[in-house]
């Protein structure tokens, strides 16, 4: 199994619902977030182009955060999901420093926290909270090894890119362009 997410930058309107839904679903403390939305605009009036991306942990295949964690708190679980074991994390920050996407934040309780692909939901057959809420249905989630999953199908149909592929992390968050 290899879970992955695809974000359709052509449909995303940058409403940030994914951020709010993640916050309430996962009790992300106010002031922090596991996902965020970036808007990139380029050109000169009136020749303009805009790309909007909902970003979160890339659940990298080659995850530097897992490698550099001194306690093994950052780890990869089934489906390639990168999670932090709160009871093993000492809050040293090495994983935050190692993530090229700044996908992690220090939880006020001490440990480091990040997107879990809503592991607690997907194992119950639900889609991640951000995917389930998105009003434009621009987030696709599923198992890349299952060729009929939402995410496999859309990646077959559409052009896509990943962020900073040159960092060698092999990210599993795909942006449809």
């Amino acid at each position: 199994m290899r879970y992955a997410m695809a974000v359709d930058t052509r449909k995303c309107v940058g409403c940030s619902d994914c951020v709010v839904a993640c916050q309430t679903e996962n009790n992300v403390p106010i002031g922090f977030c596991r996902d965020w939305v970036v808007e990139v605009m380029d050109g000169t009036y009136p020749q303009l182009e805009m790309e909007i991306r909902s970003e979160r942990c890339n659940h990298c295949e080659n995850a530097p955060c897992v490698r550099c964690c001194p306690t093994g708190a950052s780890q990869k679980i089934e489906g390639g999901i990168v999670v932090v074991d709160h009871n093993k994390c000492i809050g040293c920050g090495a994983c935050m420093a190692s993530c090229p996407y700044d996908a992690r934040y220090p939880h006020p309780a001490g440990y480091v926290d990040k997107c879990t692909f809503c592991e607690h939901r997907i194992k119950n057959g639900l889609s991640p909270a951000c995917v389930a809420v998105c009003p434009t249905k621009c987030l696709y989630f599923g198992d890349l090894h299952d060729l009929n999953s939402n995410v496999s199908v859309i990646l077959k149909r559409r052009k896509f890119k990943t962020l900073i592929p040159e960092a060698g992390t092999n990210p599993q968050l795909y942006f449809l362009i």
Partner: peptide, 24 residues
């Protein structure tokens, strides 16, 4: 804890907007 759209509802189709989700 959270507010989620009702799947049967035509106005939301089970998906609230950010303001509705943040209604808590």
């Amino acid at each position: 804890w959270k507010i989620i759209g009702n799947d049967e509802d035509q106005h939301s189709n089970g998906r609230f907007c950010p303001r509705g989700t943040g209604g808590v």
